[in-house]
Design a protein around this nucleic acid. Structure first.
Length: 751
RNA sequence: GGGCUCAUAGCUCAGUUGGUUAGAGCGUUGCGUUGACAUCGCAAAGGUCAGAGGUUCAAGUCCUCUUGGGCCCACCA
């Protein structure tokens, strides 16, 4: 009410007014709608060419004279009060001002000239129905035409429709066309695609309907809202939505705010039945403010729901109760970011900006993050009315709440639409499982944790205070550097509203670096105090950073840390992880050069593993030795310091690091960048036998290749087998060929 | 009519001021299970980044056009 009255009484003319206008009317819901609530959808319609006879000419005359008008909605012809042509149109020039007889109704209507008429469209003559079309309404005003409403509010024809009275609008259309055809007045029908407004709630085609409604004058409200965005006080993310917002704002139309539904805030206007004056009031008045009569009645209409929603940023803090709202508004207004869907930009975002600037004299928020639309696998927007939604509760039951959150976040690239199917949630579920298992492993291996006797708890000590960076092992320095680099990038991504990037960084660090490499590296020396502290610290900080994305599992694991006597400093047992700060980043440990060197070492390990596979060396074989030749002096030193881990990760019995590459017979060689890796084969495998093994595999594969080639050359097969099967066979053939190539390569290396 | 957006591995998609070898998940192939995890591990195959032209030392990334999807806006009788 406060907002309504304030706009109503705004100087000089008031921003709220009542008027008879053509508005979007839903015949089913029996209410007016705003333009935003009546989205246009394409429908396949027809363009009907109707003949309107000129006065004084008998349609049955030998040379009947008539004007052809084109329309998509013939039923509205009953309300025609003119036919318009372009004044420049030579075809009709001499007819302007003449009188036509409106068929079926036999009303006399004038031919008028207006530049609005497009000479190229249809016949160049347009029937004018001022009560049933916004354009015609304007023409009607301009040319002082009669406004004849031919429909009831439920879109049945009314008493002005003559014989068609009480027919539904679409039924009337058919009958009218029949009748016109009979009289020879339907010249032709052409298919004509068009778009029509549909009720956002029930999808009924809306009727442009002349009625008395309440409106808000928007131009002056929009002006500061345009400025705020243009000056960058409010920013859209992704920025392209700025254009959408500005385009709407700059072409803003007055807002129809009255609704003829029974729920909602009633319009705070009281009519005096005696002096006929209106009063807008915040308090319910007892008598007319003009004449004092108690014979007053409140307007029956209610307000558009968005008329209260646009006040949300401050109304939630008790506005307009100044005493109660002041403190909260001071703190929370304007807020930092609003997150919403694209279709809400007009409904809500734009209007909140206008309301904020109007009622608070300040913007309501600084950033507007527009997320993508969730669509089903076919690209249709998920909606309740379409029934193609995935029920979150079902996903939670099947995959878990954290899996739901994680998966949704990880696939939502900034502002991009999301095609969602259930399989998406497996990744989230698997990640939750991975976090759970890794945490269990760490907790199990922490000294003095769990069942261990009480004592000093070294892992609680502060990393940066206790250890010198130089004292840490290569792997520890590496994993810490990678972790803090990751955190830094996560922060950066969040700052840019790139939630998917943030979550994927955490995922890939935790799984593929921390678990796959780091934990495997330290497994053999897990009780080492450095390793203990590092793995605990990373887990603890990782849980904090991941908590916003996966709240349940991180909270549970956090409580487990507590129960094992491992709370980080300054927190009471039982305190939620929610109370924890975002993990602090130790910049000095980030060492990108070191990260690169380590990556190279890990590649060498992968290389050795690969060679073992090529040689068919079983995983259990414990008599494998290898030599690595590394010319770079610094890298050689690193390799030496890391040789224990290389040995265990590549399952080597013995490893020698040398600087000069020397090839000896009976050795198998692989290359990883500058490094040459050599596995002596004597005592490991019988070279001749392995060659034979390879040869026999090659033979077998070649036989298969021949068979496949024969099959794929067979016309019958190609004709009868489904396309996908053929494709699969082709792929298999390719794989076989690649395999043979590789085997031959290994065989050559054995020479 | 105006505007936006997409086209990258078999599939679904990341790839943000232009910069080493273009990534992930799923799927595929081979190997692997008594000690965190088969909801897993190791290894591999797979991409002329829709097409054409341009700018640049350098283009998946910027510009123009073409083709084919999706979306939004508009007073398309």
């Amino acid at each position: 009410r406060q907002a309504f009255v304030s706009l109503w009484s705004k100087k000089p003319d008031g921003l709220i007014y009542q008027d008879d206008k053509i508005i979007n009317w839903c015949p089913r819901c029996q209410t007016a709608l705003s333009d935003e609530e009546a989205p246009h959808h394409d429908i396949q319609g027809n363009l009907y060419y109707l003949r309107y006879p000129l006065q004084g000419q008998s349609p049955s005359g030998t040379v009947p004279e008539y004007i052809v008008v084109a329309t998509t909605r013939p039923e509205t012809m009953l309300g025609d009060t003119a036919v318009a042509v372009n004044p420049k149109d030579k075809r009709y020039k001499k007819l302007v001002g003449k009188i036509l007889i409106l068929p079926l109704i036999n009303r006399e209507i004038k031919i008028i000239a207006d530049t609005m008429v497009d000479m190229k469209f249809g016949s160049g003559a347009v029937k004018v129905t001022p009560a049933h079309d916004p354009n015609d309404y304007n023409l009607g005003k301009k040319h002082r035409l009669e406004f004849i409403n031919v429909m009831h509010s439920d879109a049945r024809m009314n008493e002005n429709a003559g014989d068609y009275r009480d027919m539904d609008r679409f039924e009337a259309r058919e009958v009218i066309l029949e009748d016109l055809k009979e009289k020879g007045l339907l010249e032709k029908v052409e298919p004509h695609p068009l778009s029509a407004g549909h009720c956002y709630r029930c999808h009924t085609i809306i009727e442009p309907y002349l009625s008395r409604q309440w409106f808000v004058r928007m131009k002056s409200l929009a002006k500061p809202a345009i400025e705020a965005v243009k000056k960058g006080k409010i920013k859209f993310h992704p920025s392209r939505w700025t254009k959408v917002y500005l385009n709407w704002m700059e072409n803003i139309q007055d807002w129809c705010i009255s609704r003829q539904i029974w729920w909602g805030h009633r319009i705070p206007i009281w009519y005096c039945l005696d002096c006929k004056k209106n009063t807008a009031s915040v308090e319910t008045p007892l008598k007319c403010s003009a004449c004092g009569s108690t014979n007053i009645k409140q307007d029956e209409d209610v307000l558009d729901t968005w008329f209260s929603s646009w006040l949300w940023p401050f109304a939630t803090f008790y506005w307009p109760d100044e005493a109660r709202s002041k403190k909260d508004l001071q703190y929370f207004y304007p807020t930092s970011a609003l997150v919403t869907a694209p279709e809400i930009i007009f409904f809500w975002v734009a209007r909140m900006v206008m309301a904020g600037l109007e009622f608070q004299k300040n913007i309501p928020f600084k950033d507007v993050y527009i997320h993508g639309t969730v669509r089903d696998i076919e690209g249709k927007k998920m909606s309740k009315s379409l029934g193609n939604v995935i029920d979150p509760l079902e996903i939670i039951n099947e995959y878990g709440a954290d899996a739901l959150r994680f998966s949704l976040i990880s696939i939502t690239a900034q502002g991009q639409d999301v095609y969602l199917s259930k399989e998406r949630f497996e990744q989230g579920r698997n990640f939750a499982n991975k976090i759970w298992n890794a945490s269990r492993f760490i907790l199990m291996n922490l000294e003095n944790a769990g069942q261990s006797p009480a004592g000093t708890v070294p892992v609680k000590t502060d990393l940066c205070v206790f250890f010198k960076k130089e004292d840490l092992s290569l792997a520890n320095r590496w994993v810490l550097s990678r972790f803090y680099s990751t955190l830094k990038n996560v922060e950066k991504s969040l700052g840019h509203y790139q939630f998917n990037e943030a979550v994927n960084l955490l995922y890939s660090f935790f799984w593929h670096e921390f678990c796959d490499w780091y934990l495997e590296i330290i497994k053999g020396d897990i009780k080492n105090p450095h390793n203990q502290v590092v793995m605990y610290k990373i887990l603890e900080k990782f849980l904090r950073a991941t908590h916003p994305f996966m709240p349940f599992i991180t909270e549970d694991l956090w409580q487990k840390l507590h129960s094992q006597g491992l709370p980080p400093q300054g927190t009471a047992p039982g305190n939620s992880i929610m109370l924890q700060p975002w993990p602090h980043i130790q910049e000095d440990i980030i060492d990108l050069k070191n990260e690169e060197l380590m990556a190279e070492l890990l590649e060498i390990i992968t290389g050795i593993r690969n060679m073992r596979l090529e040689l068919d060396i079983p995983a259990q074989a414990d008599n494998i030795t290898a030599k690595i030749f590394m010319p770079d002096k610094h890298k050689k030193e690193l390799l030496e310091s890391f040789s224990g881990q290389i040995k265990s990760l590549a399952r080597l019995n013995q490893l020698t690091i040398l600087s000069e590459y020397k090839r000896s017979p009976g050795e198998f060689t692989g290359v990883v960048k500058e490094a040459h890796i050599v596995i002596p084969l004597s005592g490991v495998i019988d070279i001749e036998k392995h060659k034979e093994k390879i040869d026999s595999r090659v033979h077998k594969a070649e036989a298969e290749i021949k068979a496949k080639e024969r099959m794929l050359g067979d016309k019958n097969f190609l004709k009868r087998a489904p396309g996908e099967i053929v494709e699969k066979e082709r792929e298999k053939l390719k794989n076989l060929k690649d395999g043979v190539q590789k085997l031959k390569g290994v065989r050559d290396a054995l020479k």
